[in-house]
């Protein structure tokens, strides 16, 4: 038999727990963050495929990207990669000879592929990234320049 007073106690306890639960799940969001790095990093690839940017504190294995690009995932075939972080926080990665630029976002200890941007079917021989105001510029050592966002080639 639930008395009126017991009902009131349970009612208060329920409201308290609900408030507590609601407060614990609230998220703090900071908007308009500019993640852009002023300059690309040129990272050497170790024999086991690891690349490390000591200055920026970034370290990962390049073999999955190499496999995606060339189909070779067991042994390292590239010597260096170029990487730059865009304004929205995406990482743009390319290596000499790649046909594509790989766009990753950082998430919980992972780099998750967001987009693969096709640049040249024959591969880009001497790629280099430049940070621009709202996009990443990819140049290839010739007179060509490609303006990139995480969504693809910019119109």
């Amino acid at each position: 038999m639930i008395t009126k007073s017991k009902f009131r106690i349970f009612g208060n306890l329920f409201v308290g727990l609900a408030l507590l639960f609601t407060g614990a799940c609230a998220t703090l969001t900071i908007t308009d963050v500019d993640f852009s790095e002023p300059m690309e990093s040129v990272l050497e690839v170790s024999s086991n495929g690891m690349v490390q940017d000591v200055e920026k504190g970034l370290k990962f294995n390049i073999l999955p990207i190499q496999q995606e690009e060339t189909g070779e995932g067991n042994r390292v075939t590239i010597e260096e990669i170029r990487i730059i972080r865009g304004q929205k926080g995406h990482y743009f990665i390319i290596a000499p000879g790649f046909k594509n630029v790989y766009v990753f976002s950082a998430n919980n200890g992972e780099l998750v592929l967001d987009n693969t941007i096709k640049i040249d079917e024959n591969g880009v021989a001497n790629p280099a990234f430049n940070q621009r105001d709202t996009y990443i510029q990819l140049i290839d050592g010739t007179s060509r320049a490609f303006n990139l966002t995480h969504e693809g080639l910019r119109n």
Binding site: Q131, I139, G141, T142, S143, R144, A145, N147
Partner: peptide, 14 residues
């Protein structure tokens, strides 16, 4: 529009 062909572009890192 996405490909520019002015003078040869220079890499910032260069």
């Amino acid at each position: 529009l996405s490909v520019q062909s002015f003078a040869q572009f220079q890499s910032d890192s260069e």
